[in-house]
Simulated assay, not measured.
Amino acid sequence: MTNPLEIPGFAHVYSGKVRDLYAPLAADGTVVADRLMLVASDRMSAYDWVLETPIPDKGAVLTRLSLWWFDQLKDLVPNHVVSTEVPDVVAGRAVIVRKLEMLKVEAIARAYLTGGGLEEYRATGSVCGVHLPEGLEDGSRLPEPVFTPTTKAPVGEHDLPMTPAEVAAELGADTAAEVSELTRAILARGNEIAAERGILIADTKVEFGREPGAPAGRGGLVLADEVLTPDSSRFWPADRWQPGRTQPSYDKQYVRDWLTSPESGWSKASGEAPPPLPEAVVAGTRAKYVEAYERLTGESF
């Protein structure tokens, strides 16, 4: 992972797989306690590895798309964005946000069955304790979006599926129910909007937090991090959707497919870091991210 930028007026706090957090500094050099700057890098992660090859403009695409979606979702749930006025060195790929106490659950909803959910369904007939109808295949549309949360593992470790009971034990029953409702509502709203633009959103991951000191229970949840981006969601072209096979996509599945192809020479089971991405895969991935942004927002990147 590359070293974080030195940004005057900000102290580096943390680097995740693809994002860096900075704390604003007051005039006397002390940390501003209730604000953070969230910077989206061009790093790409896949199969719990941070790849050594960046994807140009990826951070800017994800930031602009998240801001657009936050606006489409503001009647459902408040979000953490305070300002887009950031230092020039990270302009376009950073936002100033409220500092929240983050919930220790990856909130995932699925409208279609694929990926890890499909593997679990084939083994058990259910996903995260949610029983699903028989006869589903790769790409099948589910009767309604289901909540399939996972643990929030540290960088380099695997997120693990959580049952409803485990989520309730972690968050409390009221908060767990609200997280489930909001996550499914965000995916449903996303699909309403995306369908008009020829895109299906198969599944998505979102994160929630609370203002520090806010009481537990219902109410007070804030949508944080990113929302309905090609990094946090699977986007499929609607006109090419065909259950029973792997779907073409606008997301990082393109990178995953190359990594697991004979061409890469890499095995997920090897325990070794993935190889660098070839130029064609980098260019193709950037093009897919930009196309998803432009189709969804109607704006030119």
Rank of each mutant, 00 (worst) to 15 (best):
N3T: 14
F10A: 01
Y14S: 13
S15L: 02
P24G: 04
P24Q: 02
D34R: 13
S41H: 08
E52T: 11
E52H: 01
P54I: 02
P56C: 07
A60W: 00
L62T: 03
L65S: 03
L67M: 12
P78H: 12
V81Q: 04
V86F: 01
R93E: 06
A94I: 08
V95F: 10
L100V: 10
E101F: 09
E101M: 14
M102I: 15
V105C: 09
I108L: 15
Y112R: 09
A123G: 14
G125R: 12
S126L: 10
S126I: 06
H131I: 14
H131E: 15
E134L: 12
P143T: 02
E144T: 10
F147V: 03
T148A: 08
A153D: 08
L160D: 14
A176I: 01
E178A: 05
L182A: 03
T183E: 04
A188Q: 14
I193F: 11
V206M: 01
G213S: 09
R218S: 15
G220N: 07
G220A: 10
L221D: 05
D225E: 11
E226S: 06
L228D: 01
P230L: 00
D231N: 08
S233D: 06
F235W: 15
F235V: 05
Q242F: 10
P243W: 08
P243R: 06
Q247Y: 07
D251L: 00
K252A: 05
T260G: 03
P262A: 01
E263R: 13
A269F: 10
G284M: 07
T285E: 07
R286M: 07
K288S: 08
V290T: 08
E294C: 09
E299F: 14
E299W: 11
F301Q: 02
